Simulated assay, not measured.
Amino acid sequence: MGAQSIKLKSAAKLAATLLLCGSLTACAASYRKHGYVPSEEDLAEVVVGVDSRDSVAESIGIPSSSGVLNESGYYYVSTRMRHYGAAEPKPVSRELVAVNFDTRGVVSGIQRFGLEDGRVIPLQRRVTSSSIEDKTFLRQLIGNLGNFSPDAILDQ
């Protein structure tokens, strides 16, 4: 019986050690990178005043997004997020490269921004929601009580 109890104790110690190691690795932070930013070498190939929109897209890739006003520029965005347990993911680094174009579509400047240049700007998709979705049927019914007058009913 002595040999079996020693085996049980060593198995219990092994199980406790594995459980401890598993719980410690579960609490380790993981990092994920989203987006694409061209390297300095790739950006060096873009010549200000010479390259056009098409040549920029060919040499450094299609941008993450572009300017909404007269297609003013290309924007390459990369974000590194830290995921830690059940906590909300937090941005550790964010890099933005803006390639600006003039009215002829020729590169007028290249700028690089990061978190150190300012505050964190949350990148999110904005969708316009319908005001009807937020209201229950009873709230819609009561909300319409003041929208008509008795004259409108009597005239018909």
Rank of each mutant, 00 (worst) to 15 (best):
V99M: 04
G118Q: 09
R112K: 15
P89W: 01
V120F: 14
R112D: 07
A86H: 07
E88N: 11
A86I: 12
L115S: 03
L115A: 00
R104F: 06
G85P: 09
K90E: 15
A98R: 09
D102C: 03
L96W: 03
D117Y: 01
A98G: 02
F113G: 07
V97H: 01
G114S: 14
I121M: 09
D102K: 08
F113E: 12
A86S: 11
V99I: 09
R94P: 05
V92N: 04
T103P: 04
D102I: 00
F101A: 02
N100C: 07
R112E: 07
A98W: 00
Q111M: 06
K90V: 14
E116M: 14
E95M: 06
F113C: 08
E95Q: 13
L96A: 11
T103H: 10
V92I: 11
R125Y: 10
G118V: 01
F101N: 07
S108Y: 06
G109F: 00
I110N: 10
G118D: 09
L115Y: 03
V107Q: 05
R126N: 04
R112G: 05
V106A: 00
E95H: 07
E116R: 07
P89M: 08
G109L: 02
P89Q: 09
D117N: 06
P122N: 11
G105Y: 06
I110L: 04
L96R: 08
L96I: 13
E95N: 10
L115T: 02
P91Y: 01
Q111S: 15
L123V: 12
F113I: 08
R112N: 12
P91T: 02
R119F: 03
P89T: 04
G109D: 03
G118I: 02
F113R: 13
I121R: 13
Q124K: 14
V97I: 06
D117M: 00
E88P: 01
A98L: 07
V97W: 04
V99R: 05
S108C: 04
E88R: 10
V99L: 02
P122F: 08
R104A: 14
S93E: 15
P89A: 06
L115C: 00
E116D: 15
I121Q: 13
E88H: 06
V120E: 15
V107E: 05
K90D: 14
E95T: 14
L115F: 00
R125W: 06
D102H: 06
R126D: 02
I110C: 09
G85K: 10
P91H: 00
L123Q: 08
T103N: 14
A86L: 10
E95A: 08
N100H: 11
I121D: 13
V92E: 15
R94V: 08
